[in-house]
Simulated assay, not measured.
Amino acid sequence: MSTDYPSVGVASGLPRHSFPLRVLHWLIAVLLVFALIGGLTLGTLGHERLVELVGMDMANMAYIAHKTLGITLLGLMVLRLLVRLLQGTPPYAVDLSGFQRFMSRSVHFLLYVLVIAMPIVGWLATAAAGFPINFFTWELPPLIAEDPALAEQLFQAHMIVALCIIALLVLHIGAGLRHKRRGDWVMHRISLSR
């Protein structure tokens, strides 16, 4: 494996993802953090405790905001997947070991799958619980009939998927920081800066 990293002077010529894909990456990253924090807060407190703390109107706004974030993430992830499939993936500027390539591909694949699955499971859980599926001020179709027992299972699955995403993000961010510290330009492929 080569450790001859490209110099700063050639950074602008290194292979990178397209600008639209880089923007989508960082936009999704920010929204995902807010969705995870909000979802874990809502799931931990529960509706009744949240209403006690902030009142009914604020609690309802929190749930609407969380659902809106989820639907937005779903749309952005589908768009990102399409862009990535159409444009492909640029090569790395440095050689990675077989293990690094395996981990990189596995974590990216699982993040795509789970970040797309999480809002879908949340949508189904919300519908099964008999609650509206809000996207800003619009109400989206429920997709499935009300079923309280199924709703409970789907909300549990929604939480498990969220926890799996958090674990994958720890790996993903940790690997990114390691590459940044090594100065091997792997992070340059997805950074917004030149």
Rank of each mutant, 00 (worst) to 15 (best):
L14I: 15
R189T: 03
V8Q: 12
A129P: 01
I116Q: 02
F155T: 08
H179I: 07
I116N: 01
L21P: 03
A128L: 10
H179G: 05
M103V: 13
D95H: 15
N60T: 07
T72S: 12
I133D: 03
H158C: 09
H188G: 06
E48H: 04
P90Q: 03
P91R: 09
A175R: 14
P148K: 11
G43P: 07
V161E: 03
G174W: 13
W123T: 08
P142S: 12
L140H: 06
F135V: 08
P91W: 00
P141R: 01
I144H: 02
P148W: 10
P132S: 05
L69G: 11
S193Y: 14
F135P: 00
S104G: 07
A62Q: 05
L42W: 15
V54F: 11
D184I: 13
R181E: 05
L21F: 07
I160Q: 07
V83L: 00
M1N: 11
Y5D: 08
I28V: 10
L27V: 12
P119H: 03
L111E: 02
G46N: 04
L168P: 00
H17T: 01
I64T: 10
A127P: 03
M159V: 07
L111C: 03
S97C: 09
L36G: 02
V30N: 09
A128R: 00
R182K: 14
V51M: 14
A129T: 07
P119Q: 02
V94F: 09
K67N: 08
V94L: 10
W26G: 08
D57I: 14
H47K: 13
V161C: 03
A93L: 02
T89V: 04
P132N: 05
H108P: 01
A157H: 08
R105I: 07
G176L: 01
H66D: 05
A128I: 02
G38I: 11
L79D: 12
M61N: 15
I64E: 09
F99Q: 07
H108N: 12
D147C: 02
V121C: 02
S18M: 03
I28W: 07
L40R: 09
N60L: 06
S2A: 13
G122W: 04
F34W: 15
M1Y: 13
V161F: 07
F136W: 14
L110R: 04
G122I: 06
Q87E: 15
L96S: 03
